[in-house]
Design a protein around this nucleic acid. Sequence first.
RNA 1: CGCGGGGUAGAGCAGUGGAAGCUCGUUAGGCUCAUAACCUAAAGGUCGUCGGUUCGAGUCCGACCCCCGCAACCA
Length: 481
Amino acid sequence: MNNKNFYITTTLPYVNAEPHIGHALEFVQADVLARYFRKKLGKENVFFNVGTDEHGLKIWRKAKEEGFEINDFVNKYANRFKDFCKLFFVSYDNFYRTSDPKHIESAKEFWRVCSENGDIYKKRYSGKYCVGCERFVTEKELIDGKCPEHGVAPEERNEENYFFRLSNYKEKLLEWLEKNPEVLKPSQKRDELKRIIQEIEDISISRLKENLPWGIEVPNDPEHVFYVWFDALTNYVNAVGFGEDKNKLEKWWPGVQIFGPDNLRFQGVIWQGMLASAGLKHSAKLLEHGMVLGADGRKMSKTLGNVISPFDQEQKFGAEVVRFYLLSGISTFSDSAYKEDDLLNLYNSRLANNFGNLLNRVIHLSNEKEVEINNEGALEENFKYEVDSRVSEIKSLFEDFEIALVSEKIDELANFGNKYITEKEPWKKEVTKDQCTNILNNLSYLLKKVIELYEPIIPESTQKALIALEKRERIILFKKI
RNA sequence: CGCGGGGUAGAGCAGUGGAAGCUCGUUAGGCUCAUAACCUAAAGGUCGUCGGUUCGAGUCCGACCCCCGCAACCA
């Protein structure tokens, strides 16, 4: 990424379950940024990657349990995620699948490069292995002999594994973070990242193929397969030409990575170490979004019965309303409770009453008064200045990835329009046609800006709004719920 | 002393050193072009507690109290 190009990628969800509301948050946040930068830099200068992580023991076992051929199983979920993207207007440029033969080649190439740089070695390892975590766990981590995360007793394993010399990069990563304090957002997480780096140890990056047939074979050692994380993480550069097209890679990498709180160690440390080993630049930006909590402010769980399904929400309110709420009502960088009441309040207040209503007022008045609108020549300087300065403030918030703040400021801009029209009272008989022309053109200009700024957030409605404004057709864009 | 996140108006949240803000709700008024929408005003906050740094702290430091997550469908 540089000033001319913008590359953003989500994490790749693991395909052992249905898409949930957290995936929706991450995908939709990334989508907003991709859409914003497409408008700013041009479509050809933005690359938005999403996809699915399809290897690993959990998936292998789940497929068997459900009586699926492994390929059918992962295809089913990959398609599920594709449908999910379509449903929520996630405009990806690339849907990356780690079962794709191209990925397999690129991941192997990544391994070779790290290996040539002396960062991969083989070591006999014995210990307790948690299938859920897909890693060896230490005695210290266990509670009552069980993995605290998955509640199952780990399996005894004694095997030879390949290790990645992450410890080689400890000092370099600390230095990188020190020199680039702005790389991680939100900044409050910086200390946590630093601590994780300080605790770096070499990591196991392979499994025996006899235990795990569903993985990528290690180059020149077919008895071993990649540990799923090592394979999956490479997608971020593979998607933009690693091991295949140097110019392409040069154009896009380093990129912006968006991920959830449980992923900081992987995106912020392991992956950065891998990049360094492969001689690639560190990520340009790490955006850690928050958790979507249940309506009660607690983490969603089946037992608590507070799980919110993105599909149910879509059925109930429509995709754009859900999108709008995820982006505006849910904090961009911290945990937030998902409450339907808040969703309704925010939708009614900001979209129906403020933006939608203003749009309708202006269109209606321009027809009543027979005044041409959408004419920038009839704009008042002061008004334009006010609107433009708000617009540039909002754009800089976009570029600082502050999506919820962006949404709030757009709302304020629309509200400024409602105040203005109330103050000017263009419906009054005493207002001359010239005055009315000025007032309504000021407002149509403001509305165009609001529409343009809202476009990344609610792409479909803004399209309709623009058409209505241009054709001066009355429209109930957002029906009050 | 396990690790981490958080405590800001009735509710939900924003606010990383310089006049306490947003949405909803409540009360009173205005307007009537508009989706019973819009505008104005008011009420409502010791920014968890105590101490410290500073000309100045919700914002930095220390101690303490309380809530939440680390069990899942894991972002």
